[in-house]
């Protein structure tokens, strides 16, 4: 009963927004929009790829939204208006793909590192995390970055306890960049895109717990959604991902 209720609320919301979209498409340009929901860790390469996509498809405007993969997958399952979903790992994607009965594609790999501020600091290696005077942060276990961190903690590859669990990986990175934490568990790609403010220390065991960012053109999305996925998997897209610190599949 509650489910039919929810569906009718969604259709009501759609009915309310449809005329707006139609009005927005008026005029001679007829520019379509492509809504891409992407994991926080994909912020930089996806921003770059969206720009390239718009150059190649002048009739399409790409709208990007970045958040924790788990949040985005949840939103997609609940029927959020989106065309492409890109998550930081395969497990999170599966929850959405199963609910939508669709087949996602892996497009890169990533792994966790220990990000510390550039310059000397209290953390010079993973062993320093056990020091109670050291403040370090990780992601919440529901986010892909947090799931890996929890696994490494469970396996005893990291000793100590984080002082805070942030909702997504960019929030972890921000704590380190702002100097509010001595170290943070983030993706290798995050350190590359963060530029000069932070550096990466190796994390033992992280290579065995690689994450596989995955993408899905959502059922019912316009053809441009598949075009975007194609760009991501193309040589050009892969070059952008490599430059942003992501590994090949």
């Amino acid at each position: 009963m509650t489910h039919t209720g929810r569906r009718s609320i969604v259709s009501l919301a759609l009915a309310l927004t449809l005329p707006l979209t139609a009005a927005g498409c008026g005029g001679d340009a007829e520019r379509g929009t492509l809504t891409v929901l992407a994991a926080a860790s994909l912020t930089e390469p996806f921003t770059e790829l969206a720009e390239r996509f718009e150059e190649q498809h002048p009739d399409v405007e790409v709208r990007l939204a970045f958040d924790s993969s788990a949040t985005l997958a949840q939103q997609v399952v609940e029927g959020a208006p989106a065309d492409v979903l890109a998550t930081a790992d395969g497990a999170t994607m599966l929850t959405a793909a199963e609910a939508l009965d669709a087949d996602p594609l892996a497009f890169a790999t990533n792994h966790l590192v220990l990000a510390v501020p550039r310059g000397p600091g209290p953390v010079e290696g993973v062993a320093d995390l056990a020091d109670p005077d050291v403040s370090w942060v990780a992601c919440v276990p529901t986010a892909p970055c947090g799931r890996v961190a929890a696994t490494l903690l469970e396996q005893g590859l990291i000793a100590g306890e984080p002082v805070s669990l942030e909702v997504d990986v960019k929030a972890v990175l921000a704590r380190v960049v702002d100097g509010e934490a001595d170290a943070g568990l983030v993706y290798a790609s995050d350190v590359v895109t963060a530029g000069d403010s932070v550096r990466a220390l190796p994390l033992p065991g992280a290579a065995d717990e690689r994450t596989v960012p995955s993408v899905l053109a959502l059922p019912g999305a316009p053809g441009s959604a598949q075009d975007f996925v194609d760009l991501l998997l193309s040589r050009e897209g892969q070059d952008v991902l490599r430059a942003a610190g992501f590994g090949p599949i």
Binding site: V137, V140, P162, V163, S164, L165, E166, V167, R175
Partner: peptide
């Protein structure tokens, strides 16, 4: 969550 962080037992 912005200022104090989010950790079970201390700030969550």
């Amino acid at each position: 969550i912005t200022f104090a962080g989010n950790y079970p037992g201390t700030t969550q």
